[in-house]
Design a protein around this nucleic acid. Structure first.
Lengths: 187, 187
DNA sequence: GAATCATTTCGATATATATCGAAATGGAGA
DNA sequence: TCTCCATTTCGATATATATCGAAATGATTC
């Protein structure tokens, strides 16, 4: 389950009028299935269905007490989601970068690329900068070597500051230079 | 449209994978319908459908630019909802108090009553305290007068502190005493 | 171990809605 | 005014899901 799937499940769990009413009840105190069914005038089986959706989204937790299952609200989960909604960075990650599987890479790219694919800002941390560099390497999957003008031409699709990327690719060992520095190759 | 309906609409708007992706795109920069359709590989009519749902929840706003309609994310609305999720008081209001129509009264009762109907805490502000008192008056809809023991017996369903309510009912003019203070009547 | 009780699961049905193609709309530019 | 273009609306269809009653489950109590 990816983060995005979990977030979707969260919203689906709350996208129902009766489930919102259940959350409202549990926000006051824990309730059993039967109590909820009585107050909301629903069948126990229906309430159980709703609770399983809320539980799947980690919004509620249940504890067995005698014959009853007592459900209570998981506030920490709610607060966590509230933080996501308030964070522009996390929102950007909702639109995944095509073809990047690794979650960390996705997160970094979502943060530092704008939607047109341009690098909005270079990461300071080496590990994150490396993600950008590996992403840039995708532009060089054909047979090398390439001269500096060609390298620049391709890197321009990522940023005006081609020099920073080019230097990074060399310094981080993703590319090597030969022919007296005039020819670039993949490492 | 009540607050709760609006909140439901908000969650429904976000309870779809493609709409979450659209939000992710708009979190980076404004997009036209056609751009979104291209990136997400959906028909423009489908994207338009989604945008109208997001717009109905006040999550996005659109501006006409030439032939294009440019949609952008309404962050203030998102932040507002994030605050709701983090507020236990607002969550409690999701389960309405039976038979109370006035929105202000509902809010006050949701805040100061626990689900068992007990008064969790007495409001300081006179206006809110008055809501509680009017709620307490529901216990006296039959023919009076009632003696103090009877008044207390009924008020016990609301709070152990029957004296505070009883005094409030007199002081705020909802009830009067007669027969030398031994008989209580509705004002 | 048997009976009881709340809860869950299952099967069925009705409603909601995501998606598309086609047609309508409405502005911008000629 | 007429044309063009993106967008929206409409109609149709397929999928998802809310709800219920009945049956199964599982734990507690006698």
């Amino acid at each position: 389950m990816t983060d995005n799937q979990a977030l979707l499940q969260f919203f689906k769990a709350l996208a129902d009028a009766n489930r919102l009413r259940i959350v409202g009840l549990l926000a006051r105190r824990p309730h059993s299935v039967d109590e909820i069914a009585t107050v909301l005038e629903l069948r126990p089986s229906t309430v159980s269905h709703h609770l399983s959706k809320l539980s799947g989204a980690a919004l509620v937790r249940s504890e067995a007490q005698g014959h009853y299952h007592v459900y209570s609200l998981d506030l920490s989960s709610l607060h966590e989601r509230a933080r996501t909604l308030a964070s522009s960075e996390e929102l950007r990650e909702l639109a995944p970068i095509e073809g990047v599987e690794d979650p960390f890479d996705r997160k970094v790219l979502a943060t530092f690329l704008d939607e047109s694919g341009q690098i909005a800002q270079f990461p300071i941390k080496r590990k994150k900068f490396d993600v950008i560099l590996r992403y840039a390497l995708r532009l060089f999957e054909d047979e090398g070597p390439w001269d500096e003008r060609e390298v620049n031409r391709r890197l321009e699709t990522l940023s005006d500051d081609t020099a920073t990327i080019r230097r990074g690719l060399i310094d981080h060992g993703h590319m090597t230079r030969s022919a007296g520095g005039r020819a670039y190759n993949r490492a």
